[in-house]
Design a protein around this nucleic acid. Sequence first.
DNA 1: CTTTTTGCAAACAATTTGCAAAAAA
DNA 2: TTTTTTGCAAATTGTTTGCAAAAAG
Lengths: 173, 173
Amino acid sequence: MKPDEKTLQKRFKRFQSATQQAGIKRTHQRLEIFRVVASSSEHPSAEAVYREVKQKMPTVSLDTVYRTLWTFTELGLLNTLGPRQEKVRFDANTERHHHFVCVSCRFVHDIERDVLQDVKIPKSVQNWGAVIHTHVELRGICMNCQRKQEKSVKSHSRLSPTPPKRKKGLNNE
Amino acid sequence: MKPDEKTLQKRFKRFQSATQQAGIKRTHQRLEIFRVVASSSEHPSAEAVYREVKQKMPTVSLDTVYRTLWTFTELGLLNTLGPRQEKVRFDANTERHHHFVCVSCRFVHDIERDVLQDVKIPKSVQNWGAVIHTHVELRGICMNCQRKQEKSVKSHSRLSPTPPKRKKGLNNE
DNA sequence: CTTTTTGCAAACAATTTGCAAAAAA
DNA sequence: TTTTTTGCAAATTGTTTGCAAAAAG
């Protein structure tokens, strides 16, 4: 179930303006890489994109695909799912529960199941499969990070200009 | 906010019976590793567990911690969050949306936001931070895998006895 | 003793980085 | 020609594995 023509055109329009605004070059490979992701609804991994791009451009390298995908993500043209620089984390709470996740420091807090209302599963979802359970992730900024941000806004009065590179240490675990 | 004494005791009781039933030995390091995870609510990574266990047992090795944590997970004593053997995946759908995820083959299907009811955020969550948005993950078995399972049940009439080891290829991407 | 578990070191998979060459502007 | 982007190869991170020695029953 690929995105329809209309959606695709919209995506390319965004691609044009975003790249223009950011002042980055629309190279052969960037175009091609974007085309592959934009015309898929399978949430491909970097490798999967790579494999497909290679058909048309046998000389691309995997690391260009990675770099490019992250560039697009930073431009807001793509979103990611799955791990970024995350490690597996273990939880002795084996009751089904939901999570509050701080997008800034990765702090995770368990939310007991009965604190959130149950999400009703619409019939349309049944087309895709049988739902076994529902996990809600509330994403936000934890108290700690809120405080830090207030301070840094006061002193620097500037939001972080570049997305965070891989950091050494410092993360909640 | 560590688990209270009561919860802790319950967890250790489960530890006792689960290990006994599985016939695995309650070694010094297993005890210690379990103690660390069970008495934390910070969803520690393997490394974080390792660091803490090392305080009391300077000779443990990181790989024992990993092995042990997975053993506990297989016994149902722990749950994991975050990546397991997953790769990052990219999505050109930048509208906020939810997901249906097949727990068997990792197939992911987007669910438009207005198909699911909005989850009401209870005030109690505000103690942990400011919620920016909500992501619902419906986990289940996709149509494809359902069909496969039917077949394999007919022919083998046996559920997979061991949890899946790292597989080469074969995953939806 | 026999079987399980450990620690070590080496292997691995996914991803990132440094750098010189190639391609834009 | 100056700046950006690429491809390559090497590095890094998180995690897993083979194996001989050590510990448990």
